[in-house]
Computed example of a mutant assay.
Amino acid sequence: MTLSAEDMDLFKDLRMAEFGRVIQEIIDDPDRDHDSFEDKVKEALYAQRNARDSRRIERLMREACLQQSVAALERFDVTTDRGITTDRINRLATGEWIIHGQDISITGATGTGKSFLAQALGVNACRMQFHTRYFRMSDLGDDFDMLRENTMKRKKFMASLMKASLVIIDDFLATTVSQHALEQVFNLLVARERSSTVIASQHQPDYWYSVFADAAIADAVLSRLSTNGVLFRLKGEDMRTRPEVEAGTQVVNTTIPRHL
């Protein structure tokens, strides 16, 4: 028995092309003749689900601006005294902290892996099908500046960031941004009280107070990040010398079951 072109077109129309492909493979394999009907259908269904989830993950990675990232939690270097343990990496990989809206701040000198860890958290979130957004602060500041005179678009942009399960701001306060952009970034942080935010910065939190003219805003943000979050102070050798990072090898978007 062979599925016809019309049969395959029907699977495509039903958005079940992978199901049809696997069924045809099973039909063509004489070693599968004695497999139960249930096992054959189950295998095709799982293949269809995995294909669907892979497409979703790819879309989420694009939306997060992480599709070119080589970062992954399983690649983070904990062999040296990095300031974070394997057990902690494994707990972060579960995504529970996102489900509970916990914040994470990452500090450390250049090369200690701040951006790598921040991006790895974002990639892992996309794998688990959390809606994620990743920005370097200078880019986020530019986005807010471009929308300064367009209140409606700025509110729409802000609303999209507030709805994301995870927002990552890398190179936090590493470069100067306009006062308007600074205010918008901190309005965003205040608004994300029940959603997870990752901050990666060369500067320790105490420095953040000195950047803001409005002490009340700084207190509100820093209080929430400290009471609802965890701070990782990274240290150790330069991670950028690792072979796979130098080579720019991209992580395969492994399909992982969705979060509940």
Rank of each mutant, 00 (worst) to 15 (best):
N150M: 02
V70A: 14
T132I: 09
V211D: 09
M162G: 03
D139C: 00
M128W: 09
I256P: 00
R21Y: 06
D77H: 05
R88P: 00
L66R: 07
H100W: 05
L121T: 00
L231N: 09
V251D: 02
Y46V: 11
S54L: 14
E18A: 14
E74F: 07
L3Y: 11
P30L: 10
L73C: 01
D219G: 07
A93Y: 00
F76L: 06
R242S: 11
H131I: 12
F157G: 06
A44P: 08
T80Q: 07
A215K: 15
A109K: 08
G101Q: 01
A47V: 06
E149S: 13
R59C: 02
I98T: 05
R192V: 09
S115I: 01
A215T: 12
F172V: 12
D87P: 00
K40Q: 13
H259T: 13
Q202M: 08
T151P: 01
V123E: 02
L161M: 11
A109Q: 10
F232G: 03
D170M: 08
D29P: 04
R192G: 09
L225K: 05
M162L: 07
R194A: 12
D53R: 14
R52T: 13
L166M: 05
G95Q: 03
D170P: 08
S105N: 06
S54N: 12
D238H: 04
Q67A: 14
Q24R: 07
K153D: 09
K40L: 05
D77S: 08
M137F: 06
D13H: 12
I89G: 01
A5D: 15
T249M: 07
E43V: 08
M152W: 08
D219A: 12
I27D: 04
L260M: 08
E183A: 10
V198G: 07
Q24H: 10
L66F: 05
N253K: 09
H34M: 13
D145N: 11
K12F: 04
F232V: 07
L173E: 03
V70G: 06
P205L: 14
A164I: 05
F186H: 11
V252G: 06
M162P: 00
R75M: 03
E74I: 08
Q67S: 15
D142R: 14
E43Q: 15
D9E: 14
I217K: 11
L3K: 02
G95A: 06
I99C: 05
V185P: 00
G113M: 01
L188Q: 04
K12C: 05
I256Q: 09
K153M: 10
R192W: 09
D103S: 11
T241N: 08
N124Q: 14
V230A: 10
K235M: 12
Q250I: 11
A159T: 12
